[in-house]
Amino acid sequence: MDREKKLREKARELLESKEVDLVIGYGWTRYGKRVAPVFITRPEDVDRLIWNPMCVNNLTLYITRKYPDVKAMGRPAVVVKGCDAKTVNVLIQEGQLKREDVVLLGIPCEGVVYRQELYDGEVTKENVSPKCVVCDVKNPPLYDHLIGEKVEEGSGFEGARNIYQEIEELDKKPEGERWAFWMEHFERCIRCYACRQICPLCYCERCIAEKNMPQWIDTSAHGRGNVAWNLKRAMDLAGRCVFCGECERACPVNIPLNLINQKLSMVVEESFNHRPGYESEGHPPLIVYSLEDREDFIR
């Protein structure tokens, strides 16, 4: 594929010129047919880099402070889709990253699959990731090198399930039913924290789930602890989540985390006219106070 070739060329160039010490991209695993993050440090290894609709991971995860080992490898270049690039904007806004600390290899993307195992050579309205259905960043809003030509914006997945419609439908249900819906999901949570660990914006040095003086959240995987954990995480991402969809993808028990995170995004957009990830200036609205903030939540 053309983009793949260009990606490898660019990676080689960056590594050979020592502009970067490593390239974080996608590559095949040894067994099976899976795509995984790869860390390329030598120009002769760039052919391991690939690009296809199974490249789902948001690789900006590895340039957060959660990965001191990766940081120790030197200056990174990261392959980013549009949605992933939005994460970089938020990380910059939150003081986690300086723009010049990373080289972004932006890849125009026409949609990835929801889960790798669903891929059968083509992205369809059945297997597409829900974020791609409502995508408006097929071309990364932020990059240093664009890999290949830009593509036309707009969704090509008519008829696929639309997350905003799903949220609307859920919102129409009576409160008791909505509560029951979420309880059924949260009760299945196994507290593996894959949602948190895969999230590039969950970078707290000590997560509240692990703070025990006092114990804010029960660590037991029972209803009470699970609800507390899932709601707390959703609240922490409100106004920050860029809908990369990684938490829902990583969840081993299929909790529809996109629904809750995008619901909160909608609330924040409505209240503060803010959509995270589109710019690196300013601050997420929930961490700053402004005289213009609406106060209609105080009744």
Binding site: F39, Y62, R191, C192, Y193, Q197, I198, A250
Partner: peptide
């Protein structure tokens, strides 16, 4: 070891499964 586990995100999905 450092290389093989570099991408590991440290969740409990594998152990709990």
């Amino acid at each position: 070891w450092q290389e093989v586990a570099r991408k590991c995100i440290g969740c409990g999905a594998c152990t709990f499964s």
